[in-house]
């Protein structure tokens, strides 16, 4: 059993503490917006916020997430109101297949919190998610737009 606080809600989950946070979020908490891509923290599709920082949840154990505020893609929008990052994603028509985009948006949201007006170099350093469809050109545009919003 583990008590996880996800998107402001406390979940009592019947889960082995050595389970990767990704799979507890997806399978026990039932929040499937966070995606499995590689399992070895390479691709970033599983990015969530833990204590306000972007982490790759496939390599975080549940036991290390206990007591921390976890935010997933489902926790960003307030009802129908998107965050400025999500809105920029809509305005710039960013996603293609969309599978990596939850992780991408979580990584970008953390970047903008740390650096509200990131330079291209800041983006290059902080955003290392893989997108096989190749949406990077629109991702960069949308990050700058969100920073201005």
């Amino acid at each position: 059993m583990a008590k996880l606080t996800i998107n402001g809600r406390v979940h009592d989950l019947d889960v082995d503490p050595q389970t990767p946070l990704l799979w507890a979020i997806r399978e026990q908490a039932g929040l499937t917006g966070t995606k499995y891509g590689c399992g070895i923290a390479q691709c970033g599709a599983c990015t969530v916020h833990m204590g306000g920082e972007a982490v790759r949840s496939c390599t975080v154990f549940v036991e290390d997430a206990v007591g921390k505020e976890i935010t997933t893609i489902e926790g960003l929008a307030q009802g129908a109101t998107l965050t400025k990052v999500q809105q920029a994603w809509v305005d710039h028509d960013v996603p293609q297949c969309g599978y990596c985009q939850a992780g991408m948006i979580m990584a970008v949201s953390a970047l903008l919190k740390a650096k509200p007006k990131p330079t291209d170099a800041d983006i290059d350093e902080a955003i290392t998610n893989i997108c096989r469809c190749g949406t990077f050109q629109q991702v960069r545009e949308a990050i700058h737009a969100a920073a201005k919003a």
Partner: peptide, 18 residues
């Protein structure tokens, strides 16, 4: 603009794995 973007930026699109 694409017609399927909102679900993709909110984590609501259901993929096969979901």
């Amino acid at each position: 603009k694409r017609i399927d973007t909102l679900e993709k930026v909110t984590g609501k699109q259901v993929y096969g794995t979901d």
